[in-house]
Amino acid sequence: MADRAVSAVVGKALEASIVIIYIGLLTTTLYAGVLPEYRTAAATEVADRTVADVSGDLQTAVPSSTATNRTEHQVDLPATIRGETYWIRVQNGALVLEHPHSDVGERAPIVLPRSVTSVEGEWRSDEQTVITAERSDDTIEVRLETGER
């Protein structure tokens, strides 16, 4: 009779421990492996699109008519990617997105009309971001500038 009483307890304990181990395994795989990987994948895509958007904005900021001397163009950036702020800089004729996470980052070449002689500046994503293009004589200087958000 004592055996029968123990058998139920053992059975329940076994079931409970299997469930706990299963949930433990599941949580570990999801939170340690799959989720960060997906977050990084999504962040890479967002970074890619952000850089593409900014290079499109650079293109539209360049005044095509000589009647325009200065343009200011506000740019909407995602304030954070993968939960962290990031930088956008101009380096060696390329637009570079730098992110604290080593797997997230993007660079795209800057292709602008010949009258644009220089593109300079850098942005932090949580600032208000503005592209200014200024014409002096025949050359146009493009700057990435920041304001208060």
Binding site: D48, V51, A52, G56, E106, L112, P113
Partner: peptide, 14 residues
Amino acid sequence: DATERATAASLAET
């Protein structure tokens, strides 16, 4: 590849 696309678009515009 959004950057590739943006590069092609800006080269075409240029």
